[in-house]
Amino acid sequence: MGVSDEMDALDTLGTSTIQKLENLLLVAVPRDLTDRDVLRLRRQVLTAIRQHRSRWVLLDFSRVDICDSFFGRFIQSTAKMADLMGAEVVVAGLQDAVVETMVDLGMTLPGVHAVLDLDDALALSRTGSRGSAGVEEQGPSRSTGSSWDGGSEWLDHDSDKTMGVDTSYTHTFSSSLTGK
């Protein structure tokens, strides 16, 4: 097998698609992204959020069969950036083999929600405003819905860390663990 054959088989950025579906942006993440492609895709997603005023972004990972730490960082940073724009990133379609590797690798993605499929993502995006998503697993600190409700909440979180998304989810996650 020649090297050029393998190159032809690579699934790169050219095949990615960003589609608008209701108030959800549907991003089909290609399999074989170079680092530059990953950054380009992140910019495309952020531009599309603004263009379409989308409050939800679904990163569809069903084609991705190799997820290294750089890819993990892409998911994480896209979620943080989207959060600053007022949109929430949801991940869907991570393969079982992929999640096993991610967890064993030690990758944690605080603040990133996952859903099973597009139906669940649509259902999530239809139930109320962003920020109140996945309300059942959230502790009292976000129970008031969108982050905009509690100005003090923002200030509190700002004092620990600048990225609101990180701290708020970490807080709620740990509080749900301790049962408070």
């Binding site: 090297v3 393998e6 088989a9 069969d65 096993e100 590797t101």
Partner: peptide, 27 residues
């Protein structure tokens, strides 16, 4: 790197590694 990991995944699968193991090798 992208090409090497893609080939590595194929080699591992061919050898009989489980998908999850092959995936780890590729990563």
């Amino acid at each position: 790197v992208v090409r090497a990991r893609r080939s590595g995944l194929g080699i591992a699968l061919e050898m009989g590694f489980h998908q999850a193991e092959a995936n780890k090798i590729a990563v």
